[in-house]
């Protein structure tokens, strides 16, 4: 059994790197897009707010797997060819964006109205209020759930194996296909996922404690 695992390690390592690449891309892109849309949802004009609300509620209302299949199989039908990796990243990103939008909305909404009023009272313009008063506080409230949500991206990335992307999940299945010994490899895979995600959720808890002073 040890021999099998040693034999499998290079495959798994490569798969692990793909898992990190997928998760990393998803997290970075969705952070940028999600924050922009989240701010739009709170402060934007009504049509934008409505559009973001519908987008977020729709995406969050369907299984990620359906979203992945829809993007991978559906987009070529309307003339947009994406390889499996790109389709997987796009689908997971759409999902993550919807999540980030909600974190941003929640973070901004949690700041008492008095903060904006006090900022107005000393003569700060809208842009300055956001930059110096609202965003610094919102960031501290946004970070813990966001970092914790990165674990969702890592876990969700395992679904891309279904499109044939050779991530950690797929690599494990390939090795099992050759060795016919499933349990040890699934357990090993579980431990790897666990270690990555446990580190992330611990970081999230630490951030939360560190920013606790801000919560009154």
């Amino acid at each position: 059994m040890i021999g099998q695992i040693l034999y499998a390690l290079p495959f798994l390592w490569h798969g692990f790197l793909i898992t990190l690449a997928v998760s990393g891309l998803v997290v970075v892109i969705s952070l940028v897009v999600g924050v922009a849309l989240g701010v739009g949802l709170v402060y934007g004009p009504l049509p934008l707010r409505l559009a973001v609300r519908i987008f977020s509620d729709t995406i969050r209302g369907i299984p990620i797997l359906v979203l992945i299949f829809f993007v991978y199989y559906g987009l070529p039908a309307i003339g947009l060819q994406l390889d499996a990796f790109a389709a997987a990243v796009l689908a997971l990103t759409l999902f993550k964006v919807a999540q980030v939008v909600e974190y941003v909305r929640g973070a901004i909404a949690s700041i008492p109205a008095g903060q904006a009023e006090a900022a107005k009272a000393i003569g700060l313009t809208f842009a300055a209020r956001l930059r110096y008063v609202i965003f610094p506080q919102a960031t501290r409230r946004f970070l813990p759930p966001f970092v914790n949500g990165v674990t969702d991206a890592v876990k969700g990335s395992a679904l891309v194996s279904l499109l044939g992307v050779t991530d950690l999940m797929h690599a494990i299945n390939q090795v099992i296909g050759r060795t016919y010994d499933a349990l040890p490899l699934y357990l090993l895979g579980a431990v790897i996922y666990f270690l990555v995600n446990y580190a992330l959720s611990s970081l999230s808890r630490r951030l939360e404690r560190r920013y606790a002073f801000i919560r009154e």
Binding site: L159, N173, A182, L183, A190, Y193, N197, S201
Partner: peptide
């Protein structure tokens, strides 16, 4: 909470 559901599904169905 820190392991993908799909892996647990495989583990229980193919591994156990």
């Amino acid at each position: 909470r820190n392991v993908p559901l799909i892996l647990l599904v495989y583990l229980v169905f193919y591994g156990l």
